[in-house]
């Protein structure tokens, strides 16, 4: 059982296209235990109820954005240690700074490829 068979990932993105692209990449990598949410608040509820190892989350979403979700996860101690990778098209210095303060694990730039996605995940959780 390699890590890619056991790792559980939550994908949070309000756009179904992005979700489809992310899940497509994950499947190409060979990760099968993933779930998707289109709303950060709903995702937070799900993660609190049933923890995952890693969250792949879009930055720009209505209601609660990616960093807000990260903050919420980090301040709740049952979820504080969950890995969190932010996916964004605009990694500004400001965003990087806040991300690091909140303990962001990694950042994937849009548009991504399966290779960059895999590399980014591996830098957080180790070889898949």
């Amino acid at each position: 059982m390699s890590l890619r068979d056991t790792i559980r990932i939550m994908i949070v993105d309000d756009m179904s296209v992005s979700r489809a692209l992310i899940t497509q990449s994950l499947e190409e990598i060979g990760i099968t235990k993933y779930q998707t949410e289109n709303d950060a608040k709903a995702a937070l509820g799900k993660i609190v109820a049933a923890p995952v190892h890693l969250v792949l989350c879009d930055m720009n979403m209505p209601g609660m954005n990616g960093l807000e979700l990260l903050h919420a996860l980090r301040t709740n101690k049952t979820t504080a240690r969950i890995g969190f990778i932010l996916i964004t098209g605009q990694p500004t210095p400001e965003l990087l700074r806040i991300g690091q303060e909140l303990g962001l694990n990694n950042l994937i730039r849009k548009p991504f490829t399966t290779a960059t996605m895999k590399a980014s995940i591996e830098r957080v959780v180790g070889p898949l």
């Binding site: 995952v52 890995g83 500004t92 990694n106 730039r109 959780v125």
Partner: peptide
């Protein structure tokens, strides 16, 4: 403009849930 950004990834021990 931000293509060359480098984010220092923070590694994590993954424990099975």
């Amino acid at each position: 403009a931000w293509d060359n950004f480098e984010f220092a990834a923070v590694t994590l021990d993954i424990a099975p849930i």
